[in-house]
Amino acid sequence: MKTRTRIAAITAAGIVTVGAFAGTFALANSSPPMFGPGPGPGNGPVTMPRGGPRDGGCLGVPGVVDPSGTLTETQRTALAANAEEEKLAHDLYTEFANRYELQVFDRIAASETTHLEAVRTLLTRYGITDPTANQAPGHFATPAVQATYDQLLAQGSASQDAALQVGKTVETTDISLLRESLNGLTAPDVQRVYGNLLTASQHHLAAFGRWSNR
């Protein structure tokens, strides 16, 4: 199954299997270790957006400073797909922030902006067409991603609790996709960004869980 189509399939499936995904990955509330290379470029301090993990903030994604490597065609496709997934998360959370008075959506949407910028930097570095370029909020180049966005937006528009559930679905899906994308990856710069995004998604998932239990 193509990566972009799989994103939509996993996300749609996640609507009814969030608990199963969360159990599979057994996410802890403490900060997990970074992925990527050991000491070297890119290992400097990262910043914490206002609010911190408890209120939806996460570890910032530093600039892409690690050396580039080689990507297979499958890995190039996955990088473009991850850009669309980051935009999907950003656009959904922005919509929910406008509908509900929960700071978690506003803060995580801001984080997703940084995440998408990091992925776009990699797309430029590797000469990969950015599928999110010139796409208005809520609009996507890939039909399957568009359908997933529309479905999740409708679900989250039903109530505040439903929107928080969508947030957990999106972050659980991101974790699954990033783990898969890291499999067999050797390019240091992409490893670093994916590792940071994985850590961020774990923080986001924990934050949505905390807000759901209030």
Results as ranks from 00 to 15, higher is better:
residue 214 R to K: 10
residue 193 V to N: 02
residue 130 D to N: 06
residue 29 N to L: 08
residue 169 T to M: 10
residue 44 G to S: 10
residue 128 I to T: 06
residue 6 R to D: 12
residue 119 V to F: 07
residue 133 A to T: 08
residue 76 R to P: 02
residue 56 G to P: 13
residue 167 G to E: 00
residue 36 G to M: 13
residue 34 M to E: 12
residue 10 I to D: 14
residue 194 Y to G: 01
residue 105 F to T: 03
residue 10 I to E: 12
residue 61 V to Q: 08
residue 212 S to V: 11
residue 49 P to L: 05
residue 70 T to V: 15
residue 199 T to R: 14
residue 136 A to E: 08
residue 52 G to C: 05
residue 162 A to K: 02
residue 13 A to H: 14
residue 191 Q to T: 07
residue 179 R to P: 02
residue 145 V to M: 14
residue 17 T to I: 04
residue 53 P to E: 02
residue 136 A to S: 11
residue 102 L to K: 10
residue 192 R to S: 13
residue 128 I to Y: 10
residue 164 L to Q: 11
residue 19 G to P: 00
residue 177 L to Y: 01
residue 114 T to P: 01
residue 114 T to Q: 15
residue 207 A to W: 03
residue 82 N to C: 01
residue 202 Q to M: 15
residue 170 V to T: 05
residue 48 M to P: 03
residue 156 G to M: 03
residue 159 S to N: 05
residue 203 H to Y: 08
residue 8 A to Y: 09
residue 120 R to D: 05
residue 85 E to M: 11
residue 163 A to I: 05
residue 78 A to C: 04
residue 170 V to R: 04
residue 49 P to D: 02
residue 27 L to F: 11
residue 81 A to P: 00
residue 58 C to P: 00
residue 126 Y to A: 01
residue 78 A to H: 13
residue 12 A to H: 07
residue 199 T to P: 00
residue 194 Y to A: 01
residue 140 F to W: 06
residue 105 F to P: 03
residue 42 G to M: 08
residue 43 N to H: 09
residue 172 T to G: 15
residue 58 C to M: 09
residue 195 G to N: 05
residue 41 P to A: 10
residue 23 G to W: 13
residue 163 A to L: 05
residue 185 L to V: 03
residue 14 G to Y: 01
residue 72 T to M: 04
residue 59 L to W: 11
residue 18 V to D: 05
residue 196 N to H: 15
residue 132 T to L: 10
residue 88 L to W: 08
residue 210 R to G: 09
residue 69 G to K: 12
residue 26 A to V: 07
residue 99 R to Q: 15
residue 34 M to W: 10
residue 88 L to V: 06
residue 199 T to K: 06
residue 149 Y to Q: 03
residue 173 T to S: 15
residue 188 P to E: 07
residue 40 G to N: 02
residue 206 A to G: 06
residue 98 N to E: 15
residue 6 R to M: 09
residue 94 T to H: 12
residue 14 G to W: 09
residue 173 T to H: 07
residue 150 D to Y: 02
residue 19 G to Y: 10
residue 19 G to I: 10
residue 196 N to M: 13
residue 117 E to R: 15
residue 78 A to L: 12
residue 59 L to I: 04
residue 13 A to F: 13
residue 131 P to N: 12
residue 51 G to I: 05
residue 108 I to G: 06
residue 145 V to H: 05
residue 180 E to M: 06
residue 209 G to F: 12
residue 73 E to L: 13
residue 183 N to D: 15
residue 214 R to E: 11
residue 135 Q to W: 04
residue 150 D to P: 03
residue 134 N to Q: 06
residue 61 V to M: 04
residue 73 E to C: 01
residue 144 A to I: 00
residue 141 A to G: 03
residue 153 L to G: 09
residue 19 G to D: 14
residue 19 G to S: 12
residue 36 G to I: 09
residue 140 F to P: 01
residue 86 E to F: 07
residue 132 T to S: 14
residue 72 T to I: 02
residue 201 S to G: 14
residue 49 P to S: 03
residue 104 V to Y: 05
residue 66 D to C: 09
residue 133 A to G: 04
residue 59 L to Y: 03
residue 87 K to A: 12
